[in-house]
Amino acid sequence: MEKLNRKKFFSFITKTVFFTAVVSFLPTKFLNSVSKASEEKVNIKINPEAIKRNKV
């Protein structure tokens, strides 16, 4: 097996960490906002005055 080249190893680790950091901090919120799948919260409240039927 080839002897591990220290310089090249650290270069590889640095590139990986940098790449991971860039990908992790992508502006996902911006991407979501342009997507049609809106993140708007929907306000569902029952009407307490409605009279329900117990059994159909």
Partner: peptide
């Protein structure tokens, strides 16, 4: 072999970030 390790780690990094559902 070197290239294999590089691609492996890069794809692991992508997979980690992609695991979270963006929605």
């Amino acid at each position: 072999r070197r290239k294999f390790l590089a691609v492996l780690s890069a794809s692991a990094a992508i997979a980690t970030t992609a695991c979270t559902d963006y929605r």
